[in-house]
Design a protein around this nucleic acid. Sequence first.
DNA 1: AAATTTTGAATACATATGTTGACATTTTGG
DNA 2: CCAAAATGTCAACATATGTATTCAAAATTT
Lengths: 77, 77
Amino acid sequence: MYNPTLDSRIVGRVIADFRKRKGISQEVLSGFADIGRTHLSAIERGERKPTLETLYRISVALDVNMSEIVSEIERAI
Amino acid sequence: MYNPTLDSRIVGRVIADFRKRKGISQEVLSGFADIGRTHLSAIERGERKPTLETLYRISVALDVNMSEIVSEIERAI
DNA sequence: AAATTTTGAATACATATGTTGACATTTTGG
DNA sequence: CCAAAATGTCAACATATGTATTCAAAATTT
């Protein structure tokens, strides 16, 4: 069996798109989500893979459901 | 500011429920998902927080969408 | 009840996530 | 164009995820 991998750039692009739709900066979002700004930057560039916990905090800060973000990621796969 | 955290036991219970619904063991699921069996065990017990990557591999192995699992988690919150 | 399968648990370890601070680069707005 | 804001990037570090092995405990099966 082959091991599917999740394209981190897609994850990052989706999160960045949600953030921009809200019209807030990385600085503001990372502050609300209580995660490091450079960390969020790395996630959006696909250089870090967030835990479900981190995605949850981002989704709460963005005021959307995790499942909305995840659905968007899956649509982009 | 408030600090939302994702209850790992809920995440674990949902994943375990999906697995049991499929009628397969941790051994079999971890094999399909290509993750360690003890790791899956720890996730199901809420002692490890999976990355989105790991959840993706589990969802593919379970033949369900990540968003289905995530929706179930959010319903349980 | 005995045997088998499944799961929990502990260890030691490798690798990745996540943090803070500083500075460079790019983008945006006046 | 210029200043300010936003983002990219690097380093050093702390912490957590994820690995493999082993054994115990619990659940199934016969």
